[in-house]
């Protein structure tokens, strides 16, 4: 399916979904990250907690995506990348992402986006320079893809809150999980 028609699918899916106020989301998420920083006092630990929570969201949210997005099945990991960027990002965050920087083995790609609804009002204090503020997104991607048999690693490499001009998540396919039972089960 062409990228243009995937974008249309994303727009349509976004139109259909129930909306919540972007401010409510940004403020809830913000106070939530702050509380984690207070509780754990360590940037790395907070990043890990955010990823873990994202994972738990992803394994549940993927059914919502599959039931409502009308996205076509993925014949390749490149299709998956396009669908995550054009359809899923648009449907759940309201902003599409761009796919780029494929590795030569075609197993790693970057999701790039500039507007981040989670970080709309956020300025990261210097003290917490090591925090990937929106790390929950990495977890969501990991959890969601794992439910459709793709084990991936997802991590932020650029973030506008760190003074860079865009957000970039690097996604690497580790393996395609096989759920088929063994034929010889004796």
């Amino acid at each position: 399916m062409s990228k243009a028609s995937l974008s249309k699918l994303g727009d349509a899916a976004f139109e259909r979904t129930d909306k919540v106020s972007a401010e409510l989301l940004a403020l809830t998420y913000g106070s939530f990250v702050r509380q984690l920083l207070i509780d754990y006092e360590d940037a790395e630990e907070v990043n890990a907690q955010l990823a873990k929570m994202g994972y738990n969201i992803g394994v549940r949210l993927v059914d919502d995506f599959l039931a409502k997005s009308n996205a076509p099945p993925c014949a390749s990991f490149a299709d998956t990348a396009d669908i995550v960027a054009k359809v899923a990002f648009k449907m759940f965050l309201g902003v599409p992402a761009l796919v780029g920087s494929w590795s030569s083995d075609r197993r790693t790609f970057s999701l790039v986006f500039t507007d981040n609804p989670l970080a709309e009002f956020t300025e990261l204090p210097e003290k917490w320079g090591g925090v990937w503020y929106s790390n929950v997104l990495c977890g969501v991607i990991k959890g969601a893809l794992e439910m459709v048999q793709m084990e991936v690693d997802a991590r932020f490499v650029r973030c506008t809150l760190r003074g860079e001009d865009l957000n970039e998540i690097r996604v690497t396919l580790l393996q395609v999980l096989q759920e088929k039972p063994p034929v010889d089960d004796e």
């Binding site: 099945p73 014949a75 390749s76 998956t80 048999q149 039972p181 034929v183």
Partner: peptide
């Protein structure tokens, strides 16, 4: 369900995700 997928005479539509 698993059985009929094994019996399918032609390869399933190409998909790296779940069985179709």
């Amino acid at each position: 369900q698993l059985l009929v997928q094994e019996l399918s005479p032609s390869p399933l539509p190409k998909s790296i995700t779940a069985p179709t």
